[in-house]
Structure formats: C-alpha cells, structure tokens
C-alpha cells in the first residue's frame, strides 16, 4: 500500500504547493493594489516604469503585430478560398486581431520583455541585499519597486494592445491590398464597419489584465527569489513561465465572460 500513498503524495505535493503559491500571489496582488492608493507615491519611479514598460516596448509590439496581421490575412485568404469566402479577409483580420491576437500576443511579448527584466532586476536586488537596504532606509519595497511597475502595466499595456490592434490591422491591409488584390478603400471601409465598440473595449480590458499579470508576476518572483545567480535565473524563468500561462488562462476566462454578456 505504501507505493499507493507515495504516488498520491507525489501528486498532492505539487498541487498544494501550487495552490499555496496562488494564494500568496493573490495576497501580494491585493497588497500591491492597496499600496497603489496610499501615499507616499514615488513619481519618478512611476514615470520610469511607464517609459520602460510602455514606450520602450513599442518596437517589439509593432513588429509582432504587423507580421501577425500580415500572416493572418494570407491564412484567411487561402483558407477562405476553400469555400469561396476570400472576401472576408478585412473582417476576420480585424476581429481576429482586436478580439484575440492583439491582446494575447502583446501580453506574451510583454511577459517576455517586461516580466523577465522586472524579475531579474528585483531578484538581483534581493540577493545583493538592496531590498534589505531599502527597508533600513525607511522605504517600503512594495511602494518603491512593485507599485510603479504594476501601475505601469495597468496603464501602458492596454495602450500597447490598442496600438498593436491598429498595427495588426495595418499589416493585414498592406498584405491584402498589395498582394491579394483588395481595394484599399473598400478594405478600410469593411474593417471600420465590422468592428464594434465592445470588441475594442474587451481588447483593452484584456490588455489591462495581462499588463497587471505580467508586471505582478515579475515583481512577485523577483521578491521571492532563491539565493545566488541560480536563484535569480530560476526566479526569472518562473516569472515568465507563470506570467505566460496565467495570461493565456485569463484570456480564456475573460473571453468567455466578455462575450457572454
């Protein structure tokens, strides 16, 4: 029988550990949000985070969106041809980018770019005692490190998603008009007519949620890093992995909520 219990324990251990982490993460997120509303506010750090999360992510987001939009147009054109529906390219590119691919791909790129750098930076600060030094200098690490970054995620990632949506549609437009023979004016007209306000709003809501997840997980794993260079490496890896998975899970959840309303 002992092998049976050993097998159960082997399943149970990671499950309880995972649930524990999820609980700690929820508390950490709640604390971050509550600190966001209470002074002191570190405006310089907030501004820096807005720049590094938002502005400096623009090239990556633009590249991701334009190639995805272009590829999407080609796929829909050739896929649609199987049932004589080549003409739907503008509509499907628009809906695909705005409702799904825009937020998800931008979210994942932010996880790769921002989550990793936040986790590595904070973890290094932790292992070199800089976090302890902050505390002894009467500065709350949550306020000084986490709040600016998470706030930047909440504000800037929806903007990036909006920009990504537009650039993605533009990618589809370029491919559609240059190589698939669509009429430029008709392509734009179709796109604009087809997109509804709720598509855009849901896209931005997803952006805010993914921005929150990406920055929060970077901070969380950074603060809870193990020792030494190995600890920093592991913290960064866990941060990106868990941010990506949570973004995809949240995407499913938000999609099912937002479009059932």
């Amino acid at each position: 029988m002992s092998w049976f219990f050993a097998a159960l324990a082997a399943i149970g251990r990671p499950v309880t550990r995972g649930l524990g982490t999820l609980g700690r993460l929820a508390i950490f997120g709640g604390e971050a949000l509550s600190h966001m509303l209470r002074p002191p506010f570190y405006f310089k750090e907030i501004l820096q985070s807005l720049l590094s999360v938002g502005y400096f992510s623009l090239p990556v987001v633009g590249m991701t969106a334009i190639f995805t939009g272009g590829a999407l147009a080609l796929q829909i054109y050739s896929g649609g041809a199987r049932f004589n529906a080549e003409a739907v390219v503008p509509q499907i590119v628009a809906i695909g980018m705005v409702r799904e691919l825009g937020p998800v791909l931008v979210g994942l790129m932010i996880a790769a770019r921002v989550t990793s750098s936040i986790a590595a930076e904070i973890a290094t600060m932790k292992v070199t005692e800089q976090i302890d030094a902050l505390v002894t200098l009467s500065t709350h690490p949550m306020k000084y490190l986490t709040v600016p970054r998470v706030l930047a995620g909440l504000i800037m990632v929806p903007l990036l998603v909006g920009i990504g949506d537009i650039i993605g549609i533009l990618g589809g437009y370029v491919v559609g008009t240059k190589s698939l023979g669509f009429n430029p004016a008709a392509y734009l007209q179709n796109t604009v007519n087809f997109i509804e306000a709720r598509d855009v709003i849901s896209s931005l809501i997803k952006g805010a949620a993914f921005g929150f997840i990406a920055t929060l997980l970077g901070c969380y794993h950074g603060i809870h890093t193990g020792r030494g260079a190995q600890g920093v490496g592991r913290a960064t890896k866990s941060a990106v992995e868990s941010a990506a998975i949570l973004i995809l899970a949240a995407n499913f959840l938000l999609t099912s909520i937002l479009f059932s309303l």
Binding site: M125, T128, E129, Q130, D132, A133, L134, T136
Partner: peptide
Amino acid sequence: FGMLFQGGALFD
C-alpha cells in the same frame, strides 16, 4: 539607524 551592508547593497 544607519546600516553598512556586507556587499555595500548600493542601488545600481
């Protein structure tokens, strides 16, 4: 309090 950390712990 003031504290000098082992590795300096300066904010880089």
